[in-house]
Nucleic acid binder design. Structure first.
Lengths: 221, 221, 221, 221
DNA sequence: AATGAATGAGTTTTCATTCAT
DNA sequence: TATGAATGAAAACTCATTCAT
């Protein structure tokens, strides 16, 4: 759990007011997230973060310590934002197969709507995971989603639709794989293959990926 | 000794010795590939490239021009090496389903054996593809593989095993997705999920991914 | 002590002390002027400019941008300083011929007292004028002097001493020519001719040049 | 006197043939002259000199030693070329005043036709004359011209046209001043004054300068 | 006589970080 | 809480010069 930041609710979301520690911190974080995700760790500029946040560099150092710490905070923030998004997913009312389909499509859309998530993961993996390795509660981060998925798998198996022995984490990694790659690698794919990777293509791909996952789960009749 | 033009053939091609332009260029390229793929574009150091190549910085600038150009050359080299590896894949003798399985497993292994490929793609995509977009023959690069895949799909359909209308490029992107993600994201996955992503896990995952692809292709009986 | 805004007025303007942006800028400019005028553009070292200014290189880049911009600022400063000097010239009380003589002698002395002016002009002309060409108000710079000269010429003509139709700009270029060359080319002249080009020689030459100009202007009787 | 270079007359002036020491030396010198006069000493590139000469850098070092020596040779070459040009001037047949006028106009044209002369002098003076100071026969260089001028002055005086006591060197420096400055400073003059300094302007200025010199010499009636 | 290959020692420029208020 | 001024250390890039043939 992140330490409870008593953000003055009134201030939140607006352009950060001066003399407002919590707001400034938030603002720096958001700016850092954009900077690191568009330029990578080494390519990111503290100057740029300060400028975008509308605050001074010394303040950033006061709050975070050094570039590494800013990056670590931004990475954590990325995960928190993604997890917050995932909380909105509700698969309860749906039949198991439909629930899986909706999870796949949701994941694809989620990645598309929050492109800095993928960029931050790329960056962190390029760096060998040296930062996330030291993040305390990293392993709690997606547990809710995994639980939801486990429930659906159980339900599907109980209904006789899904095979047994499917591990939700393993399955989730499949789903993430299918959704992550075409977004993460959109630029190289566009250059290497003729196919147009645009919004429509990604929409279709979400459906097709859902198909693939469902076929994989189905009990063979 | 005067005009002895017999360049010692044994020396050529391998560890490049001094006063050998082609060898030096090769050596720089290899060094650049390592540097860029382990540190990303902005994190890479020309100094380091020179040191690893056992040559001086000015020579690098003489041969390539500037950091951008070194990077571009290394990116292209990456693709060339990967394509060369793909030429070794032979699916001709196998039944369609086996051929597909072998392609998936091969792809997974190929990515594992050439980790700089994935790192370079990550780097390039983080940079928005600005370099590969200007690479002349980028789109020829994987055409052989796609042709092989098309043949297998046709064969599978002819034999009544595979569904019709599967586009080989689209399918290849599925296969790449499944193989790319767990390798590319190994560090973040390790931190977020408890599962051990080690060699054995990746071996199993290759098989499982092959399963998924094959089920996706199969005509439903 | 808390909000004491009384910047010690005594400190301001002269040898710039730390934490004084305007003073630092000034100091860099002065240092750049010395460096560029003694070494030329390509020979000048930003390092040296910093050292002489007692400030760090990054600050120079912060204030000016790059070497070209430092040079441009120094060139403009050169002209401003020269113009400021020219404002002190007063020819009003003198008879026309005396006024001209005093202008010639003043010009010679002015060039001698501000040797970096000639060096900067030489440097800029060697560079093909690429910097001054883009200087906004370059053509306003010597207009005051030209006006003064025009008045004297008119006066001299009205008094029946000077010929008509003398253009002040053209005449000024004659005067500048006579004063510029022996100072600008002092080193080559010393080597090529035996004559000693020293202070006394330049004093005499100022008088002689004044003579030449006056004879040129005189109405032939 | 320069050491008699036995240039194979047949080779001279053409594109330098390989395996031809004298031709190569000549070719490097010409190239150096262009490079140093257009870029100044520090801005000149040995690489560029080699490229323009169509020869390799090591050859240049073999022939000249180092950059300083190339520069020194180019500077001396400049003077030699200028002196060679001055030999063509013939004032013998003309009345004294006409002879002076023709010398002024000739000087102006000579400077215009050989722009690298002025650039080299500028460069050398910017460097404080450190090279020409060590040139052995520098003071012989313009002696012929001075002698010619002395003759004309004597003749003019004998004819009762010119004043007595005019030193030819001093006069020559006046003439050079008038011709040098508007060519040397063409770029800054163009920017600072509105007047168009073009070929026509320089033609007129030659005449006007001749006027000024003649008026200066004339015995006042 | 001539050169392609190579480099040590700079030079400009950048950037994370701190000082002083 | 907040910042304008400043910098040490390092990065990319250059250039006169030499090596080996």
């Amino acid at each position: 759990m992140a330490k409870a930041k008593t953000t003055h609710e009134a201030d939140r979301g607006k352009t950060p007011r001066k003399r407002n520690a919590a707001g400034s911190r938030e603002s720096i974080l958001q700016s850092a997230l954009i900077e690191f995700s568009t330029k990578g760790y080494a390519g990111a500029r503290v100057d740029e973060i300060a400028k975008r946040a509308g605050l001074s560099k010394p303040l950033i150092y006061e709050y975070f310590g050094d570039k590494d710490a800013i990056y670590a905070a931004a990475l954590r923030e990325t995960y928190l934002q993604i997890r917050a998004g995932e909380q909105t997913l509700n698969m309860d009312g749906l039949p198991a197969e439909e629930a899986i389909r909706s999870l796949v499509v949701f994941t694809m859309d989620h990645f598309r709507r929050n492109p800095w998530f993928i960029s931050m993961l790329n960056t962190e993996n390029l760096r060998g995971g040296s930062t996330i390795r030291h993040m305390q509660d990293a392993n709690e981060i997606q547990s809710t989603l995994i639980e939801k998925l486990r429930n659906v798998l159980d339900r599907g198996h109980a209904e006789g639709r899904f095979r047994a022995g499917i591990d939700p984490v393993e399955l989730y990694i499949f789903i993430a794989s299918l959704c992550y790659f075409p977004i993460s690698n959109v630029h190289t794919l566009r250059s290497v293959f003729e196919c147009k990777i645009d919004d429509a293509w990604l929409d279709r791909r979400g459906q097709e990926a859902a198909d693939m996952v469902v076929r994989y789960l189905r009990k063979e009749s």
